[in-house]
Design a binder for these strands. Structure first.
Length: 544
RNA sequence: GGCCCGUUGGUGAAGUGGUUGAACACACAUGCCUUUCACGCAUGCAUUCAUGGGUUCAAAUCCCGUACGGGUCACCA
């Protein structure tokens, strides 16, 4: 029996050969320096913040080098796959305006872009390795594996399937193997590693720099019982056939690099450039760890949608984590599109950053303060449609007043920074709506005496209020009102002799403010008065 | 346990042997401005770069040890 016939029995029904696929996926025709990067999420649910981070990085490098970025769904673990997982990923990334050149939806010359649809490709390469005696079937049961690990732990040796531990199965005769196959004993295919643990290999990681490892000598599984490849094998085959130039991925993969180098060598491939990104971390109970979807709500990108944290802010924040010089660049180029920032591996952190919600919200506040009131309204409306239907209706009904209110002190060089999330907008707008103004309490400050409040409001409305006043006129009228009632209209004078006055202009303004809005903190009172209009003001004052 | 990576204020960090008395941003504190709030402005916040040694005229930067943190050692990615 030839090795080819042998391989055919071990991996039956493989349509094409390795040569066929190598011929099919020709080198990409790209300009000098063009980078090809990929992002390979598993369809295990909604997108992780780390996946978004990697997507931004991969897409950015590709775009800036006139290269290619593509999305490849890594669904070789069918147990973990969730319903509609592929769609969830596609939608979330689209929502963040990350545009790949190739993906399962867009297609492309190097597809399929879903690993489970590439089964034949992997098997063709595995078959080739078996023919060349570089891979072999392994019938090891769970118990046998556990026994090996136990023995290795006991003798304080290295853990894994290598050297003496693998010798027996490595040396198994074809006949013996075929007999087991005939009996229906399940098996996987393992790599027959030629590595030597005593040898050192050196890898130049684009981020971590010079890293030295012992050579891999583990006979790792390359094809699982279900006929699908392991991550390691799929990585070597796919990134070669898809002509990836730079593999960006989380640094939890760093210690797998020797395995991957071994695989590339055995397959006769040239390895790509690796760039291991530090993972985003989270601190809990005084310990740092990788941010996790299971434990940390903010690890899930859906969280930001729900809270109404703008996607633009999330992207900016992730950019500050990606490149330490990004923030400075952004301050120096306030009107530039962030996509024009040139990413650079040398400015990427080698150690994982703690996720900083405060910082994100600050970025968000700045971002939202700079967009137009119209845009702010529209974005809030979009958010509310999905997450706050009641507020959506109110917003829709009160479009003009909402935009006017959102515009208070906005179109200046130093706009207000009231909102970090769309979900906060309601708290800043409700008191402006006629039908919603049913305050449960008034936040009176220094002046709380009912009679005094009444006096102030009546005097102001009857003698000093004029609907057509400019802001200067308006405020000077407020001051006149103060003079009449024994309050200081000039703050400096008041500070010099506070005992000479009942209070000051701030106290009087506050009474008017609280009477009209129920709140002690609001944007500019003059603008609020203009927006509400005389009729509504009178109604609100009468209410008190 | 083996292997690997990391360690500069509360946080992200700049820093590549000598204008660093350690930038910048967030947070925090105080003050100023001010009709509230927000904005803005000013000041403060690491006598020191995990730690011990070494090299050097000179070290956060180079070398070695130690400690601590993280990752990995699956038919998961």
């Amino acid at each position: 029996m030839t090795r080819e016939e042998y391989a055919n029995i071990l991996i039956p029904n493989v349509e094409h050969t390795r040569e066929y696929y190598e011929e099919k996926y020709q080198k990409r025709n790209l300009s000098e320096g063009a980078m090809v990067l990929r992002i390979g999420p598993s369809p295990t649910g909604s997108v992780h913040i780390g996946t978004l981070y990697q997507a931004i990085v991969a897409e950015g490098f590709a775009r800036q080098s006139n290269g290619i970025s593509f999305l490849r769904i890594e669904d070789t673990d069918q147990k973990r796959e969730v319903e509609d997982g592929v769609n969830l990923i596609l939608k979330s990334l689209e929502n963040y305006d990350i545009h790949f050149n190739e993906s399962p939806l867009l297609g492309g010359e190097y597809g399929p872009y879903i690993q489970s649809e590439r089964k034949d490709i992997y098997q063709a390469f595995v078959k080739d390795l078996i023919i060349k005696d570089l891979a072999y079937p392994s019938f090891l049961t769970e118990e046998e594996k556990a026994d090996i690990t136990a023995a290795q732990t006991k003798s304080k040796g290295r853990i894994g399937y290598f050297g003496p531990w693998a010798a027996k199965e490595r040396a198994m005769m074809m006949e013996e193997v075929l007999e087991k196959v005939k009996l229906g004993i399940p098996y996987v295919i393992r790599l027959k590693s030629n590595g030597d643990f005593e040898n050192k290999i050196v890898v130049e990681d684009a981020i971590k720099g010079h890293v030295e490892f012992p050579e891999n000598d583990m006979d790792i599984v390359i094809l699982k019982r279900d006929g699908l490849p392991t991550y390691h094998f799929a990585h070597a085959v796919d990134d070669t056939l898809m002509h990836t130039t730079h593999v960006t991925r989380g640094d939890e993969w760093l210690s797998s690099v020797p395995v991957h180098i071994d695989l590339f060598k055995t397959l006769g491939f040239a390895p790509p450039i690796y760039a291991h990104l530090a993972t985003i971390q989270k601190e809990s109970d005084g310990r740092r760890r990788k941010i996790s979807k299971r434990k940390d709500p903010e690890a899930n990108v859906l969280y930001y949608s729900e809270k109404g944290i703008p996607k633009e802010a999330v992207k900016i924040y992730l950019m500050t984590l990606a490149n330490s010089n990004f923030e400075e660049w952004m301050i120096a180029n306030p009107n530039e599109n962030i996509e024009n920032f040139k990413l650079d591996f040398s400015h990427m952190s080698t150690s994982g950053a703690l996720f900083d919600m405060e910082k994100l919200l600050n970025i968000s506040r700045n971002y939202l303060s700079k967009i137009s009131a119209e845009e702010m309204y529209q974005k809030t409306l979009n958010w509310a449609l999905k997450y706050n239907p009641e507020f959506y209706e109110t917003l829709k009904k009160n479009k003009e007043i909402s935009i006017q209110t959102l515009n208070i002190e906005r179109e200046s060089t130093k706009p207000r920074k009231d909102f970090a999330m769309y979900s906060e907008v309601e708290a800043g707008l409700w008191y402006m709506y006629q039908e919603k103004f049913e305050p449960t309490e008034y936040e009176w400050q220094k002046i709380t005496d009912k009679e005094e409040i009444k006096t102030i409001l009546n005097t102001y409305m009857n003698e000093f209020f004029c609907e057509t006043d400019t802001e200067e006129e308006w405020f000077s009228n407020v001051k006149s009102c103060c003079d009449k009632l024994g309050y200081a209209s000039n703050m400096k004078e008041y500070k010099q002799n506070p005992e000479k006055f009942k209070g000051n202009v701030a106290d009087v303004s506050t009474v008017i403010r609280v009477a009209l809005t129920s709140k002690s903190r609001t944007p500019n009172l003059y603008d609020i008065i203009r927006i509400l209009g005389k009729e509504e003001i009178l109604r609100r004052i009468k209410k008190i």
